[in-house]
Design a protein around this nucleic acid. Structure first.
Lengths: 208, 208
DNA sequence: ATTGTCATTAAATCCAAATTCAGAAAAATT
DNA sequence: AATTTTTCTGAATTTGGATTTAATGACAAT
């Protein structure tokens, strides 16, 4: 049996990563009904090779989506790195949650999943968890701002945080569906309009 | 050639309706990747019979979704019948847009579509149109209330209307994904919280 | 160098669903 | 009642994708 050297496991996890990425891209392109062959094509392999690593495609898809959500969340947290002013943090968070254009692969993946979640428990659980994590992120941000006296919250932070995440989600879908007048900036301003109301803070209008 | 008598066209449209309903139910159950056989089963026919009326399944699915959206919208308008007080109209509209439980077939259909819209232009167009119609509905409602002096709008009615529809959409997805603490009533109260802020009206708290 | 394990392919096979179609059944027309 | 048209079924055929497998190359261990 092969020893688990550092080199080997590094290769293994690189390979695993390739598969997850291929699955993500394939799913972003073809939706949850993506075919094994389509994943294989994105990975530059034969379907047999995929099957060798993941005998059940569904498992690969679930793993791919978990990884995708993790990345999405991590990137949002990273976007806040070094920003201390609560108002600026709020603004940055709002814009970082919205897809820039309809070709945003990460959000495309999340949209595909959202439709499936009503019928598939695993995806429902994953998406629910992501929603709640984002809510928690906003809640912390709002509470911090309130404690510092920067924000005057109109309701409890949970309510506001939920509404902010909900607005992001919904406008994400609209942007991905190429709404003619509702692009990233318009959506950001719509959410900011609510955020101002909820925090009594004149959040920067043109920072976007 | 058959004459287009009243009887005949009544039968024709009844048959057509059966097909559309079967397609809707099948799609609510299986998503956009629904199989021809599954539609046939819901319709109590063979796949050949479906094909006889709709040589291309996609056409049937699109028609079914158009009909489903039309019904969804019509039902919302109907729910307002006879209600004159703007505040009550607003409250009713908010609750009528949310699925009551995760087995709501109409919303399930819309969710399935939302995921597909990022990849399918036809569904994107249909959903965008539905979104805009709902926005228009809310806008009228808000403007009327403002004119009557019942509402003091915090922003222009388009902004508020868009946010209200967006919130409904997003919470619809959450409810359909069986969020453990976010059911119909909780979601309605979250949206109402925003509606109060945006209209400066103490919308009824326990009318739901 | 040799051996054994791992990763992969390509071809064969299997399977499920779509599609076609001849003809039965039902409905409408005369 | 006879005829024509419409609707539908069931069986045959085709298609496309999943799955299996034997063979092969790549690599690591000895």
């Amino acid at each position: 049996m092969a020893k688990s050297t550092g080199r080997e496991s590094r290769q293994k996890s690189a390979k695993r990563n390739d598969l997850l990425e291929a699955a993500q891209r394939a799913m972003a392109e073809h939706g949850t009904a993506v075919r094994l062959n389509q994943v294989a094509e994105h990975a530059g392999m034969t379907s047999g090779a995929i099957l060798y690593h993941y005998p059940d495609l569904q498992d690969l898809l679930v793993d791919a989506n978990r990884a995708g959500m993790e990345r999405f969340y991590t990137e949002r947290v990273a976007a806040l790195e070094g920003i201390n002013d609560p108002a600026e943090r709020l603004t940055v968070t709002i814009t970082s949650g919205l897809p820039v254009a309809q070709d945003d692969e990460e959000v495309r993946l999340l949209c595909a999943l959202g439709g499936e979640a009503a019928r598939n428990t695993i995806y429902a659980v994953l998406l629910t968890a992501l929603f709640d994590r984002q809510v928690a992120m906003y809640q912390t941000l709002l509470d911090t701002g309130a404690t510092q006296g920067v924000f005057q919250l109109s309701s409890d932070s949970l309510t506001i945080a939920r509404n902010l995440v909900a607005l992001e989600d919904a406008y994400g879908y609209r942007i991905m569906a190429s709404h003619p007048t509702l692009d990233h900036d318009v959506a950001a301003n719509l959410i900011l309009d609510y955020a101002r109301l909820a925090t009594s803070h004149p959040l920067p209008v043109e920072t976007i």
